[in-house]
Design a protein around this nucleic acid. Structure first.
Lengths: 122, 122
DNA sequence: CACAAAGATTAGCATAGCTAATATTTCGAG
DNA sequence: CTCGAAATATTAGCTATGCTAATCTTTGTG
């Protein structure tokens, strides 16, 4: 999901992959390991260790699914949600400050270009 | 310099940091280790090892500077230049194909927005 | 000459990426 | 109902990247 670690993100103490996986859990809800690995385009063993780190840090929980105990259900904790919200606020603030330098009409032009690019790149 | 490894880059067999450092050498010319580390915003020991990899792969050379032998001069090889050019062609082609979906006026609107954002983010 | 400063490397640790091999649980065929 | 195959996750073992602290080499200076 997230693809880069920016200066504003480093305050969290988490590396990019953990932060990114956590954001999938927070904004997309609980997932199996395979689901999370697919969402992050990473192999299952790699995701196992990223989740290890999140669980150790108290940012996610891991428990076997009751229906099918081959699967694990990975879920963000409240602390994980809080950490991510703070990170997002920091990020948004940095970009918002810079966008505020543009005139209203210029900002509208940027919005329009974003729409065009989203359509073209899809 | 480069910040992400895209699908189109992986054909090179190089990871993001090596590819990125190589691009600095190719487009910016030879540099000392400290110079390259600063350009890539990475510590000197980290850059030492990235350069190790480039040299092992035959994509860069490392030699002591004759004037001041404390320094090393790191330079891209012809093979390094070739590899990077091919990667760039792949990348440019992917984006160009998608941009071709836009009408001329739309593409001009995107260009204008890029200028605005470059100014605002600086 | 002796010692400090500059520049690079080495040592040692953690995170992330991979593939191959190994549990563990579930399902299906007979 | 049992036994083997499939599904899912983890472990093992490798490489690459990131860091700081310690070291080595070269240069400059009192």
């Amino acid at each position: 999901m997230l693809r880069m670690v920016r200066r504003e993100d480093r305050a969290s103490g988490l590396g990019g992959p953990r932060l990114s996986a956590l954001s999938v859990l927070v904004f997309g809800g609980p997932l199996s390991l395979a689901g999370l690995a697919a969402a992050e385009q990473v192999s299952a063993p790699t995701m196992t260790r990223i989740v290890d780190g999140l669980v150790r840090a108290g940012l996610a929980t891991r428990a076997p699914e009751p229906d099918n105990r081959r699967r694990v259900r990975i879920e963000a904790t409240d602390e994980g949600r809080r950490l991510l919200d703070e990170g997002r606020r920091r990020r948004v603030r940095v970009v918002a400050e810079r966008l505020a330098r543009l005139a209203d009409s210029e900002r509208r032009a940027v919005e329009r270009a974003v729409e065009l690019l989203e359509r073209a790149m899809r």
